[in-house]
């Protein structure tokens, strides 16, 4: 358990924001923490869609259940939080 700052680049929003998360958080929890500062404030919710996390510029998302501490991110490194339609 350790507090860990990340920089959130949230799809559809206009600015990077500092988000405090924990190394124990899963990527779904990281996405939710980032969404708290964007969705409903400047970005409309997208019912039915989920949010995925990836390193800025990466193609691949981190696995949803991966813990932040395992992702190899540096403190304050920027992650992109991207809307994803449910996969069938």
């Amino acid at each position: 358990m350790a507090l860990f700052p990340i920089t959130s680049n949230f799809e559809g929003d206009f600015v990077l924001q500092l988000v405090a998360v924990d190394t124990e958080n899963t990527m779904d929890e990281v996405a939710a923490a980032a969404a708290h500062h964007s969705v409903g404030r400047r970005v409309r919710a997208r019912p039915g869609q989920i949010l995925r996390v990836r390193r800025q510029g990466a193609e691949e998302f981190f696995p949803r259940s991966m813990r932040l501490g395992e992702a190899g991110l540096k403190p304050t490194e920027t992650v992109e939080i991207i809307w994803q339609a449910p996969q069938h």
Partner: peptide, 22 residues
Amino acid sequence: MAYPETLPYVCNMCQLPILGTP
């Protein structure tokens, strides 16, 4: 919801928020 609860990340050169087109 019309106010923020965190800081915008700012640029280490111009010291202004790092932003783009939404």
